[in-house]
Computed example of a mutant assay.
Amino acid sequence: MGRNAVSRRRHSRMLAGLGAFIAGLIVSAPAFAICQVIADGAFGPARIYKAAVETGSVRIQYIGHSTFEIETPGGIRIATDYNDQIRPPLPPTVATMNGAHSTHYSLAPDPDIQHLLPGWNPDGSPVDYDLTVGDVRIRNIQTNIRGWEGDSRRLGNSIFVFEVGDLCIAHLGHLHHQLTEEDLLRLGQIDVVFAAIDNSTTLRMESMMKVLNDIRPAMVIPMHFHFPGALQAFAARAASDGYQISMDTDSEHVVSRTNLPAQRTVHIMLPKS
């Protein structure tokens, strides 16, 4: 049996198991929220693209591990935690990375990437991004990180925030500590959060739930759940905290202001097979 066939079978088994686990918990409803900052051409001259995504929407595809591809109505594609093992099929316009380890950054990025944004400096000095690429504003908030030996690496991770139209999306990266009041103020109102829920190499579950409850996004999309049972444990814990649990049968999801859930929701996406 070929590798692709094995991958498809594993994907199907995982999908079936998780579907059974969260049966009866799936709820979706419209909501109305206010984004912190509008990045709709306010930071530079207008540019014209052939739109692959409807105006007001953002396409999200889960590539794997902590890598998502975000596509805007203007055709800008962003890969989060771009690395040398798991990549989108085409080079993104923008690639963000953090310094956790090799599955979170690339030593050989594709030369066609227009904007490569490491979320840390090797010398430990700050990195501060605030740029607009087409119809998306990208900014970061640095956090500390923990090495394999338990040592603290100051400013080794960045939370990247993507502001598209009236949506604000945050990728927490390899977060290793709870957020300060200043961090939360700089984040502002976030609609969608990508959160590592491994309960091991990043934050323990109680600390991650505290972070999510502090940010209060409408939608949490789990990532970094490569340890057996991590996703099921997080879904159960989130449900006990009052989150709705929804599961996507695809690796892609289109988000817009009109389809944000009214109740805080954990939206589970499986990696692209």
Rank of each mutant, 00 (worst) to 15 (best):
H224F: 13
P222D: 15
F225N: 13
N213I: 07
I169V: 15
N199I: 04
A238I: 13
E163H: 05
T180C: 08
A233L: 15
E182D: 11
L212Q: 08
D191L: 06
S207G: 05
M208A: 05
L185H: 05
A170R: 05
M208E: 12
K210G: 08
T249K: 13
S251M: 06
V164G: 09
P228H: 11
A230S: 15
V164R: 02
I169A: 00
F227A: 12
L172R: 01
A235I: 07
L203N: 06
I169L: 05
V211N: 06
D241H: 10
D183I: 01
S251I: 03
H253S: 10
G165A: 10
A230D: 14
C168Y: 00
H226Q: 10
E181C: 01
L231E: 13
A233C: 03
C168R: 06
M208Y: 01
G242D: 13
S246R: 03
A233R: 15
I245T: 09
M219P: 07
E206M: 09
Q189H: 12
E181S: 12
L212N: 08
S207A: 14
G242Q: 03
A238K: 04
H174P: 00
N199V: 04
M209W: 00
D166M: 03
M223V: 13
G229D: 07
A170Q: 10
G188E: 01
A170T: 08
E163A: 08
M247K: 11
P222E: 13
Q244L: 14
L175I: 15
I169H: 02
F162M: 11
H224C: 10
A233V: 04
V164W: 00
A235V: 12
M223I: 13
F194L: 12
P217A: 09
L175M: 11
D166P: 01
Q189G: 02
A236V: 09
M205I: 11
V161D: 00
L231T: 11
G173C: 01
F162P: 09
R204T: 01
D183K: 09
M209E: 12
E163Y: 02
V161I: 12
A170E: 12
A170V: 03
H224A: 13
A238P: 07
M219A: 08
